[in-house]
Amino acid sequence: MSNVARQEDPASVERIEHDEFDPVGTLALIAFYFAVLVLLWLFTYFVEFLGNVPTPVVVA
């Protein structure tokens, strides 16, 4: 609704360049998701998988 209201009032419309768009909040959220993903991977592989010895190994 507010969008519609803004379009009706040219004075409140601000035009910016492509690179000036700066959604820091979205970036922070995605960075947080990314960190969670990396931690989960480290936990799954190095703690849950490698930690539950013995793991079948290749024997020469």
Binding site: V38, W41, Y45, F46, F49, L50, T55, P56, V57, V58
Partner: peptide, 16 residues
């Protein structure tokens, strides 16, 4: 990173 850890497990640790 995913591929590197799996490769490390298979080559470095000998997991089969």
């Amino acid at each position: 990173g995913f591929i590197a850890t799996i490769t490390y497990g298979a080559v470095g640790l000998g997991i089969t």
